[in-house]
Every structure is written in C-alpha cells, then in structure tokens.
Design a protein around this nucleic acid. Structure first.
Lengths: 249, 249
DNA sequence: CCAAAAGTGTTATATGTACACCCATGT
DNA sequence: ACATGGGTGTACATATAACACTTTTGG
C-alpha cells in the first residue's frame, strides 16, 4: 500500500494520530509571465529545479504543504510558497484543479490543489543560482516546457493551466495582469498572440479592444516614435459589467 | 521530507500518526436532474437531510470521506458516496472546485473536492424515507434550494455548480446527460430554458441545434400527435470536433 | 533618405434575432 | 369542432473577417 513509509527520525514528534490514514494536502502554483524581450516565445512559466528525490534533477511547478496547524487557507499557502520558492509577488490568482491520483507522488497519498497565477514579469526576484544543485527557479518558455519531461504529474497540470489561460483570456480581462500597469496596444496584441498561439489582425484587434471602453489613454511614450499608452480601467470594466457587457476577444 | 508514518498501537484498532496535523479529505457531489413533470421549475438537485450534528435538520449535498487506505480515487469516491447516500447512477461527472476554508466544518479541517454530476432523473431509486429522522434524500428545485439555508458552505457550492452548469451547457453538449436517450426538440428546449432561466426562440433554437448535425432522428412518438424523436449522436459530434466545430447554444 | 514599427477604414460575408401561422391529434 | 402543442421560413440588424498604405521617428 503506497501510504506506508518507514519513519526516518527515531525521535520525531508524531503527535497527531487519526483512525484512518490521511492524505497530505499541498498547493501548486502555475506562474505565468510575459517577456516581450523573447519575441519568439514570450509566454513563460516559472519552474523549480528539484535538488532532491523524488524526481531529482527534473523541473517542477513550485508548491508545498498547506500549514494545517495554523489554519492556513489554500490561497495563503500558494502566496507563501510562491514567495518562498520563487521570490515572486503576483497580481492574479485562481484555483485551477485538484490533482489527487493515488500514485501521483511515490512517497504517499498527496492531494495537490493547483492554482493559476499571473505576474508582471518585471517584478521578479527569483533565485537563479547558476549550476548549484540546490533548488533553483527559472522562467521557461511555455512552448519549450510542454515538450519537456517534468516531475510528478506536472506535465498534465501545466497542460491544463495553459488551456485555461487560453480559454479564459478570451472572455475575461485577465491578460492585463501579465503586463505593466501602462502598455501599448501592440504589446497587448503580442500578449494575446503569444497566449492564443495565432496571429491576430491588427486593425480588428485594436478596434475591438478600444470599442469596449475599458482602456484609458495615459499619454504617449517619450522615447522613439510616440506610442499611445493605456491602462486597464477596472472601474469602467465593472460599470460595464452591470449593463450586461461581455469582454470577449 | 517525510509525509506519512503509519503505525499500529495495540492490536485492536489501527492508529495512524503523523508529524503534523492533517486535513480530512472528502468529496461532494452536486447532482442535477431534470423533471419535465414539474413544468414550473424542472431543474432539480439532490439533497440529503442531515440526521446528525453538525447542522442536524438542514439539507446538504451528498458526500463523504475518500478511502485513503484503499487508494480510492476521487471519482470513485464520488460514485460510491452518491450511490450509497442517494441511490443514484450517473451519466456525467466533472470536478467542480475544491472548498477548503479552515472553518467550513466545525469538527476540524476538512477539504472537500466537489463534483458536478448529471443524471437522468428517471433512473433514480433514492431513499425518500418520509418523516424519518435518519438521512433522507430528496430532489429539490434549484430555484427553491438557492433560497434555502443549507448545511456547511453548501449554498456556496451549489451556487457555483449552477453557474458552471449554466455556462458549460452553452458550449459543451452536456445537457443530453439530463435527458433520456431519446427525446424531442421541445424537451431539449425546455431543458435549456430551465437551466439558462430564460425563454429561447423556438424556431431559432431548432434551426441551430439541427444545423449542428449532432442529433440523429430515431422516429416518431406513437401516442398523441407524432413527435420527432432524436438521440445525441456522440460519434458525429466527435467527428465534427476534429474539423474545428464548436457546439454553442 | 531609409528602415522600423505605429497607426488607420471600408467592404463582403456570416451570424444572430425577431416574428405569426398552420397542422395533426385527442377529447 | 375545438383545444393543445408541434412544426415551419423570411427579412433585417449586427458582428466578424479580410485586406494595404501612410506616418513618424532614429540612425
């Protein structure tokens, strides 16, 4: 039975006893970022290089145990883990799916509630410790990651997260969470093209986005040819919602 | 990182001890059924009347513990609980959301993975034990349930399930799982109107559904005026999918 | 003056939406 | 013969999709 494990520490405080075996509860955060500098595949996901077994040497989604003792919520656990393991603060968080296959972790029954996280990649302060064997964080292109062999069932998890991002970005204004507060329409379109993995018509895209009335103009860029800059106007968006408005790209 | 330790204390009952407190893992099934006999509010959800504390006397969603000892999957747990508690076999099952608020159950930390279940209501064999104090199952109108005070956080759960049903029924052919294998277009439209809570135009609805080419005619009803009967043609639907077809109502 | 990237309208086609009467049956 | 509920087509409005050139700047 997979839940049986020898104890390693002779004197650990095993103070908590139950009538039945219990599952461990963890959270995982699939952290997406957008890096315009990589014009080939700007959509990134943050992974951790595992320094320990199981799956030592493979890349994995950041995550860890929920602190039941301190009544930690799942969302707080994700925030904590993502900050600890990846040094990242995020804008947008949403529960993705719960993975609970009995054999997904060779150490025992581990239930993972996965969360879908969007960050402005500029804000990162991740631990990119060169060739070190310890845990190390890195932004990797989604297109590359989906062809890698990841730890645990993390290929499946990332696959689901990417699908969710692709579908949700089309009917909810979540993409803005991947951009700095102020952005150009070209940047926004590049973001959508990276996520949806197809080219969009420039004029149709601009007309559609602008006609929604959820962007505010905040001036022009100073360097180079003046570019119109916008910010996402959350207030205007919420006002529109009340009149049955539907965001849709 | 030790996760679980199992030990026997004495010979009588097995005790399981851990280094940290653990959360209990349960599943809940929000079971929807469609009852054309109730023309006023035909969309039903199956609830259990609680015979014990906490929340004794209130109605709740059927559910229960996952059998970790026997490496039960979450889906198997839902199937088992729903069959045990409600006597129902179902057609369609999908994970809805994981509810894990630290105080959602007064007895301790309980994480519930909820599942969204569709059944053909004719097939039921539920325990409707009159005025008994024991657990008792009943089909209740969704419109009524959303105005009742349910046990635990079950109002929230049902609210989310109804929203999911409403959105998903529009872009996936899941509604057919609430109807008998053979049905008329009028029945199908009644179903959609009950779920979406608005009237649909008869001619537009029929044209749209038939033009998808995912229904097969299987003859006419014998009693009364002849009514065209159809079945959902899953094969045809899947073939269409490969050519980029999108179900949408 | 040339390269690079931002910005801008019009037209054809497809899709969605509104709407009212006839027909077959059981009573 | 009448009440009930199933069945059917058209016209108009709106939304989508395809398409190429001009402008502004820095080098």
């Amino acid at each position: 039975m997979p839940i049986t494990h020898k104890s390693k520490q002779g004197n650990s405080n095993r103070r908590y006893t139950y009538d039945w075996p219990m599952a461990a509860l963890t959270v995982d955060g699939i952290i997406f970022g957008f890096d315009p500098a990589d014009s080939k595949s700007p959509l990134k996901v943050l992974l951790i290089h595992r320094g320990e077994e199981p799956f030592k040497g493979l890349w994995a989604i950041p995550g860890g145990h929920v602190d039941i003792e301190n009544s930690e919520t799942l969302e707080d656990a994700v925030k904590r883990e993502v900050l600890e393991e990846a040094g990242v603060k995020f804008e947008y968080l949403e529960q993705l799916y719960t993975f609970a296959d009995p054999h997904r972790d060779p150490r025992g029954r581990v239930v993972s509630v996965s969360y879908f996280v969007l960050v402005v990649k500029d804000n990162y302060g991740i631990n990119e410790k060169g060739g070190d064997d310890a845990d190390m964080a890195a932004w990797m292109s989604v297109s590359k990651v989906t062809r890698m062999n990841l730890a645990f069932d993390h290929n499946k998890i990332i696959g689901m997260a990417v699908k969710r991002l692709q579908s949700k970005v089309r009917y909810a204004p979540i993409g803005f969470n991947l951009l700095p507060p102020t952005f150009s329409l070209v940047q926004l379109q590049d973001l959508y093209e990276a996520i949806l993995q197809r080219k969009l018509d420039k004029r149709n895209f601009r007309r559609r986005i602008l006609s929604m009335g959820i962007l505010s103009e905040v001036g022009k860029s100073k360097k180079g040819r003046p570019v119109n800059l916008y910010r996402f106007d959350k207030k205007a968006y919420e006002r529109s919602l009340e009149f049955g408005f539907n965001f849709e790209v």
